[in-house]
Amino acid sequence: MKAKTQEELIYLNMTMKVPYKWRTGETMGEFFRELKENGIIYANQCPTCGRHFCLPKSVCTRDHTKCTERSKWIPVGPKGTLVTYFMAEQSFLLPTTGEMLKIPFAVGIVLLDGAAVILQHQLEETDTEKIKPFMRVEAVIKPKEERKGNIYDIVHFKTIHE
């Protein structure tokens, strides 16, 4: 059999770096303001179905109703129940920073006490043996002087025993 000669193939290596701006809208703006100034996690409410959303939604995903009435907001959590989770044991490039994810990285799907929909955030615990379904967790909120009005004002969720 004739030996196959290796053909040189050209490819281009490039990096796309696209700047963007993102406005949260007034409802999430209010959520972040309350989190930053008062350290409170709020849920808003759909006037049609009565569900409490945390993170707040300006429009109900089911009823398509506007949910902007401020008097219907209630504090939820900071305790809640872990619904499910994933654990990253391999790193990935983070498109927001261009850096690699620090592993192990556990993310929990948490139903905060008083809320009707789930919230996803980092878990403090990264040992899969110690993460139990439906275990109780609590949001750890940064001290006031460190809070910036973003999702990282919640550091992570820690395991609690009640």
Binding site: I10, P19, Y20, W22, E26, R33, P95, G149
Partner: peptide, 20 residues
């Protein structure tokens, strides 16, 4: 709710290749 929205600014950084 009449509060201001929060503005986030960031990048989408994506390395890629193109075989010609």
């Amino acid at each position: 709710v009449k509060k201001e929205p929060v503005l986030f600014e960031g990048y989408v950084i994506m390395p890629y290749k193109y075989s010609v």
